[in-house]
Simulated assay, not measured.
Amino acid sequence: MLYGNILTPEGWRLGEIHWDGGRITRLTGEPVDPDTNEHPRLLPGFVDLHVHGGGGADTMEGGAALATLARTHVRFGTTRLLATTMTAPDAEIRRVLGEIAAYMADPDPRAAGVLGVHLEGPYINPGKLGAQPAHARSGPIGEVDALCALAPIRLVTLAPELAGHHALIRHLSERGVRVQLGHTLGSYEEGVEALAHGACGFTHLFNAMTGLHHRKPGMVGAALAHAQYAELIPDLLHVHPGAIRTALRCIPNLYAVTDSTAAAGMPDGDYRLGEQTVTKCLGGVRLADGTLAGSTLTMDQALRNFVGLGLSLAEASDRLSRFPADFLGQGEIGRLQEGALADLVVLDPQLQLQAVFVEGRDVSGNVQGAPACP
């Protein structure tokens, strides 16, 4: 049981949250404005749908690296994540998918829960790789089905303009896999058409896609005009604050991701990102030619950045928890209500993380401070 300012789907409540068997059993208390007291803020655990690594470990390494990155991100309030792959040869992707499935069958109880896989490539445009290795190609349905048989792929990023991808989008949507548009040279019209075929989001909005021009709106224009969901990296490096504010006004369920690399939670230096070496310096991660290559963002900092841009704490929380959970159709995470999993974070009034719970287990690890237990 914890006591504090609890963010429920109906608003803030000052009271107690109880759980048993990993699920929330009871919420008590009265409506409150959390700014009127110094009690801790209790929020749903953060849900990060785009994680390449952390703590020096990269998803494509598989094996023990998966536990390392999941333990790293839980220190910063992420209670659920998608292990995100890189564009790579088929054999490499198959290997790592098998290792992700094996880890999910026997996960580290001290870590963030892995919900499944975000397959970012290889079905992307070779002319818009960003920091992806040069193994991009179209996605035959049979090949994609074979990959889905190896691990629970929950989300696929692809370029809709590639041959056969309209059929692939429809196929994935019918089997319950979410499709995001990204690493694309597609036009506004191609983006709108892909949404009509079943695509439902955009990968790291503004980055690695055709930009907005008033006579050529591009993939960004398709997102701003039509999207209900899109992911965005709010590290204030990948996207200018003005562009973030634009997206917040246009896309109802815009949600935060870290797109974090092995460099997250680590000192400056060289790290792996798939088959490539990236360098962390001055708060960013780049390839040798200066191209941004993922981030070092953590979700607690993403929350503070959104609040710094003018969002209320409740609004910022939705974009780190409820909206990504809803995007995946996961109604038992991303919210604090009776029957939901007891995934929550405890913040002080300055929004510094104090404790993290996954299914009611205290997994705070190296988080400073202590939970607000009576």
Rank of each mutant, 00 (worst) to 15 (best):
G331P: 09
L336Y: 03
S317M: 12
D318R: 15
I333W: 02
I333V: 13
L341V: 04
L344P: 00
G329A: 12
G339D: 01
L320Q: 06
A314Y: 04
R319I: 04
G329I: 09
D318S: 14
Q330V: 03
L320H: 02
L328F: 08
D343K: 11
P349W: 07
Q330D: 12
S321M: 05
A340E: 05
P324Y: 13
R335I: 01
G339Y: 05
Q330K: 15
G334M: 02
D343C: 05
E315T: 07
D318V: 02
L344W: 10
I333H: 07
F327M: 14
P349D: 13
L320P: 00
L347N: 03
L336S: 06
L328A: 09
A316T: 08
R335H: 02
L341N: 09
A325W: 12
R319K: 12
L328N: 11
E332V: 06
V345C: 15
S317P: 08
D348N: 15
Q337P: 00
R322F: 06
Q337L: 01
L347V: 09
S321G: 07
D318K: 13
V345N: 12
F327E: 09
P349C: 02
R319V: 06
D348W: 09
L341A: 11
I333L: 09
G339V: 01
L341R: 13
V345Q: 05
L328G: 14
L344N: 01
D318P: 00
V345D: 01
A316L: 03
D343R: 03
G331L: 05
D326R: 15
L336W: 00
D326V: 03
G329F: 06
E315M: 08
R319T: 07
R335Y: 00
S317T: 15
I333S: 10
